[in-house]
């Protein structure tokens, strides 16, 4: 506040204009998505690049929801994303805690291997993964996607969780153990509540990654009833035309769970929860 008072008014106006320009730039694609979704089909080409549609309709949404398989895709995506987020967060939290707190043989090797997995282009490993999934008889199943997504997200999520655990002083769980806790009790009663922001961030990151993944979903899923939403979106593209209005309406609907999810976890993203734990 004090800094604000001292800056000249022109600079303040300039700052806000710059922020405004940035926000407009970042949100424009989302606006366009919404605009096309709300434009009646016959006007899509005639309206062209007009900023405001000349008529509004909910017809596209109605068609997507009731005349296509969209709801099934949507449900599949929710299952896959939630499953992936839950499995990844669980494993990454456990692994991150171990990396943060314990010295054990092979620790550096495991960390190195986890980094190595991040270095290969997906294109290189899709064939072997396809073979493995096929051999397991898991093709066309949501389980296969959850397993693959979890495997790919664990390294980054683990390092993320480790950094959150590193930020919590070791003294806290030692104090808890002196107070009579087992290590697991100390973890549950003292460390976990303090890691919620980290857990929220990790869940959010993994959820969005799984929600928008197309490549593996395209390769491992063929049948209509296990398609996830990004694959399903492609069905709006037929050989002869693209149904822009419905595709955009589906896109708008697809944003809903991500928004809900972040709205739900954002209160855990509040930082500074550990302040006051140690020192003065």
């Amino acid at each position: 506040m004090a800094a604000l008072r001292r800056t000249p008014p022109l600079a303040v106006v300039g700052t806000y204009l710059a922020i405004l320009a940035y926000v407009a730039f970042a949100l424009f694609p989302l606006y366009w998505l919404l605009k096309i979704a709300l434009t009646p089909e016959r006007l899509i080409y005639s309206d062209g690049t007009a900023l405001w549609p000349s008529a509004l309709t909910l017809e596209n949404f109605r068609a997507v929801l009731f005349a296509t398989d969209f709801l099934a895709y949507f449900r599949n995506s929710v299952i896959v994303s939630l499953g992936t987020a839950a499995a990844t967060a669980l494993i990454a939290a456990a692994a991150g805690y171990a990396f943060s707190r314990f010295a054990f043989r092979g620790k550096r090797l495991v960390i190195a291997l986890m980094l190595v997995t991040q270095m290969f282009p997906l294109l290189m490993i899709i064939a072997p993964i396809y073979k493995i999934v096929a051999a397991l008889g898991l093709l066309n199943s949501l389980t296969s996607l959850i397993i693959v997504y979890t495997a790919f997200n664990i390294p980054f999520a683990t390092f993320l969780m480790q950094s959150f655990f590193d930020g919590i002083p070791k003294d806290l769980e030692e104090a808890a153990m002196m107070d009579g806790c087992t290590r697991l009790q100390a973890l549950r009663k003292v460390i976990l509540p303090l890691t919620l922001p980290g857990l929220g961030a990790t869940l959010g990151f993994v959820f969005t990654a799984a929600w928008s993944e197309l490549f593996f979903a395209l390769m491992l899923i063929r049948s209509d009833d296990t398609m996830t939403f990004p694959v399903g979106l492609l069905s709006f593209v037929s050989k002869f035309s693209v149904d822009w209005g419905q595709m955009m309406a589906a896109g708008v609907l697809a944003l809903v769970p991500s928004c809900l999810f972040f709205a739900f976890i954002q209160r855990y993203l509040v930082q500074g929860l550990t302040s006051g734990a140690v020192k003065g």
Binding site: P169, D171, L172, E174, A175, A176, M178, V190, L194, L273, T274, S275, G276, A277, V278, K279
Partner: peptide
């Protein structure tokens, strides 16, 4: 034990 850092549960 009383810790140097106090180690209070925040």
């Amino acid at each position: 034990m009383v810790f140097q850092s106090y180690a209070l549960y925040p």
